[in-house]
């Protein structure tokens, strides 16, 4: 079973004692803030969890793996995640 938004909303509802609708809105607000920040090119650092980084990739020559054709990959921005030491310990214990 995967953890989804619905379960997180349920936990917010229980622990803060808010109605389901407001709990959902709070989580959506939180997600929107994170997305907006990353969209602006700013990293999001959550101590004890990890860091969401925006990386600038330069143009490079790539290949279509299916056909083997050469092609140019345009410069783009990608997201990476760096796990914090604390989270790593927690996952491995």
């Amino acid at each position: 079973m995967a953890l989804t938004k619905a379960q997180i909303v349920e936990t917010v509802q229980k622990e803060i004692g808010l109605p389901k609708k407001s709990s959902t809105e709070l989580i959506e607000d939180l997600l929107e803030i994170i997305k907006r920040t990353l969209e602006a090119g700013e990293d999001v650092l959550i101590s004890g969890f990890g860091k969401f980084c925006v990386k600038q990739k330069r143009a490079r020559r790539g290949r279509n793996p299916a056909t083997g054709d050469d092609l140019m990959l345009s410069p783009r921005r990608v997201l990476t995640f760096k796990c914090s030491g604390k989270l790593r310990k927690r996952i491995n214990s």
């Binding site: 995967a2 989804t4 997180i8 917010v12 997600l31 997305k35 927690r90 214990s93």
Partner: peptide, 26 residues
Amino acid sequence: KVVQIFFDSMADAMSKGERVEIRGLC
């Protein structure tokens, strides 16, 4: 509390070896 619950839930799930799927985010 909301921020703590959000990241704690994900860390908890991963420590149990579970997948995490947050639509639209990651």
